[in-house]
């Protein structure tokens, strides 16, 4: 009988302690959430967002179509067509597309690019109404 009552009292005490914790958070702790569309949280500068191709100072593409990025990609989502420009006898890409529907933002392509011209952006919201919208070509990818 005594142990029964002690058990009840002990149980009630543990419940009260739990309620103290929630009350503490209710009264004193600030919200940790972010009201998303109104305030945006800053991502780390090395954030692995969508890919972009850099250009040099004159606005020319740096990429020389070496295909390393497309070969290293685990999901084969980079594709390009390469030609030799007769004007300056350099290899260039005539098309360069990344299918972001397949990209898993692993960053291997960026790391392996010998010219350091492929970079991640810091945007984390990239949406489209259909799958085609996720396939970006040179017009969107190349940052001038």
């Amino acid at each position: 009988m005594i142990s029964y009552i002690i058990k009840i009292l002990k149980g009630s005490w543990s419940l009260l302690v739990g309620m103290k914790v929630t009350l503490k958070y209710f009264l004193f702790e600030k919200a940790v959430t972010v009201r998303y569309p109104y305030e945006k949280r800053k991502v780390a500068p090395i954030w692995r967002g969508t890919l972009r191709q850099l250009c040099d100072d004159k606005g020319e593409e740096i990429c020389d179509g070496c295909q390393i990025c497309s070969r290293v990609c685990p999901v084969q989502c980079i594709s390009m067509e390469v030609f030799k420009d007769p004007a300056d006898n350099k290899r260039k890409t005539s098309s360069y597309t990344v299918d972001f529907g397949r990209c898993m933002y692993c960053g291997l392509c960026v790391e392996s690019c010998p010219k350091k011209c492929l970079v991640h952006t810091t945007d984390y919201a990239f949406v489209s109404f259909d799958r085609e919208g996720l396939v970006l070509g040179k017009d969107k990818l190349v940052k001038r």
Partner: peptide
């Protein structure tokens, strides 16, 4: 979330760190 912030500052991703 706190740890994910740490991971993010090192790897650039929050779930699939690679």
């Amino acid at each position: 979330e706190e740890v994910l912030d740490l991971f993010e500052s090192v790897t650039g991703a929050r779930l699939t760190y690679n």
